[in-house]
Amino acid sequence: MTVHHQRRSRLRDALSEDVPSVFVTRDLASVRYLTGFSGSNATAVIGTDEVHLITDGRYREQAHHDSPDVAAVIDRDVVGALRGLCTGQEVGLDDRTPMGLAQQLTEAGLTVRAVADPVAPLRMVKDPQELDALSRAGGITARALEQVADTIAVGDREADVARRLEAAFAEWGADDRAFATIVASGENSALPHHRAGDRPLATGDLLVIDCGAKVDGYHADMTRTFVVGAEPNEWQQEIHSLVLQAQHAARDAVAPEVVAGDIDAAAREPLTRAGFGEAFAHGTGHGVGLEIHEQPMLSALSSAVLPEHAVVTVEPGIYLPGRGGVRIEDTVVVAHAPQVLTEMQRGLTRVG
């Protein structure tokens, strides 16, 4: 029995009796989770006894390679293919399915009903194969960042550092980057999602690098903050020390059965106490896996309860517009003894 067969069995067990007998999802990450197929056009049809994968002719061979225990249906007409597979059965559509498809299926004579996504809760709990891929992705990310940090020099462009880091991911064995690498220097470091650009690194800059490697479809995510070409000054040391305290408090709070909002509160407490609460303007973290942002979200409003073997980021920050910012982030496995997958020193060190 393949790992994907086991996941589909868990899905069937999780579906309540009032859910339609056929579940359909076009979410590519969920399709990959359930079938192993990694193409860009896919619909998974999960019946009580049969499983089908609808894709197009570009992926005929890949479908058989990625999903040998699933019946492939090669047809660009998804509505027609579903009509052929599901006539006479009520179809449960993942509630993220575009309304247009639901309408087309209804017009084709099928009985359809939107169901709350039953795959996302399963994907939160990583199985051993997933944990292995995430561990390798995290290790590659940390090693590559350590390697590239040693090469950074005053005058390098942000974009040059990003490209060197992404090349290092490949050298260490990653399949791809997990997302566009953030290299934010000087005043740009106060922008949480700055895109690496042409700005040259200057002496005394804070330098935030947020990066991740991808292995077997699974994403790592980590951030470290450096000072370029000089020792950190007093205000840089102050905000870095506070963010480090916040990150440590949040990582210590990560455990099974903990409410996600409580982890966010643990990160905010030292920053708010020091007067920097308003300077931390995003959530403390998020789940990672086949997508870079998955459930659960670690935010003030989140009531999600963390299951054992979920994998989340912990990433508090302080951002001071026009001056600079600090963020420290790790990817962490939820357990009674949490495991950090992106282990690397967290001090405010000089580069260049």
Rank of each mutant, 00 (worst) to 15 (best):
Phe280Gln: 14
Ser38His: 12
Thr43Glu: 04
Val154Arg: 11
Val227Met: 03
Ile152Tyr: 15
Ala279Asp: 15
Ala114Val: 06
Ala304His: 07
Ala114Cys: 09
Asp69Gly: 12
Met99Asn: 10
Val305Tyr: 03
Ser185Gln: 00
Tyr59Arg: 13
Val78Lys: 01
Arg76Met: 02
Val312Arg: 07
Cys211Ser: 11
Ala153Ile: 09
Arg8Tyr: 08
Val305Ala: 07
Lys126Tyr: 05
Val333Thr: 04
Glu50Asn: 10
Gln345Leu: 05
Ser30Tyr: 08
Asp49Val: 07
Asp69Met: 08
Leu15Phe: 15
Ala220Lys: 05
Asp176Gln: 03
Leu134Tyr: 12
Gly173Phe: 11
Ala300Gly: 12
Val24Met: 01
Ala267Gly: 06
Glu90Asp: 15
Lys214Cys: 12
Pro338Leu: 02
Ala260Pro: 09
Ala174Asn: 09
Val314Ser: 09
Arg327Gly: 10
Arg58Ser: 11
Ala14Asn: 06
Ala174Arg: 05
Ala300Val: 05
Leu201Gln: 06
Ile46Val: 11
Ala63Gln: 06
Thr313Trp: 00
Ala335Cys: 06
Glu315Ala: 15
Thr272Gln: 13
Val254Gly: 01
Arg195Cys: 04
Pro296Val: 00
Gln147Phe: 13
Ile318Met: 08
Arg268Asn: 08
Gln247Lys: 15
Gly186Trp: 10
Ala178Val: 10
Asp252Ser: 05
Thr97Asn: 05
Glu166Gln: 15
Thr25Pro: 09
Ile328Ser: 07
Ala142Thr: 06
